[in-house]
Amino acid sequence: MILEARDISKEFKIEQGMFKSEAGRTLALDKVSFVLDEFTTLGVVGESGSGKTTLAKILLGLVPASSGEIVFNDKFIKDFRKDVQIIFQNPYNSLDPKMRIKDALYEPLLIHNILPRRSFRLKATELLNRVGLDESALERYPVQFSGGQRQRICIARAIACEPKLLVLDEPISSLDLTIQAKLLELFLELKREFNLTYIFISHNLCVIKYIADKVMVMHQGRVIEEASSSEIFASPSQEYTRELLEAAK
């Protein structure tokens, strides 16, 4: 076990008018619990608004949970900020447009003090090569790359500090199907190579079937079904899961 989530709930205020008076509350996550085993991929599926991204943000500590707790196994997660990384859906706004690619890649190396400064360039080149880009990318800016290439850069940046757990929030949804297939292969390779554990969030069941070992189906902030990938796809127990499967056919 690398991570355990216990009864995570998240309430958002609905604000109204000029003074942002509280008009109501919405429960984005309702007592979400799960256990994540090391070196596995947990697929999180659900339609938009089901709470997938809120869950990802809470796991990363980017937003606080209203209640519940997240327990990381110290044996695997020694330094939380370094060991848990995230890749977002839209590579167009997760790279700073004014930063050269090399600076984007140097930043995690610098912050986490991974190696001496003189080795940065070599390491950054290695990372780029690993995700299928070459050294010439270092001096360029994000705008000079296509969506698929940008997502590759985000992947390089995420694995720069050798994390243990990678949260992938719809990492390929905004890309072409051909590019999606190539990036999925890359994720599988990296997982083997760096002994990674993934939480893979997607609304696309085909993608989840391809990559996940275990699947968690979310609906309106709740986990309605959780089972091994083969079980979910062969015999879903919930009506909503069946609907999702039907739609993907």
Binding site: L177, T178, Q180, A181, L184, N204, L205, C206, V207, K209, Y210, F233, L245, A248, K249
Partner: peptide
Amino acid sequence: KELITAYQKIGKL
């Protein structure tokens, strides 16, 4: 062929 490979991998269940 590339489009079809992608479809077979992740375009259908």
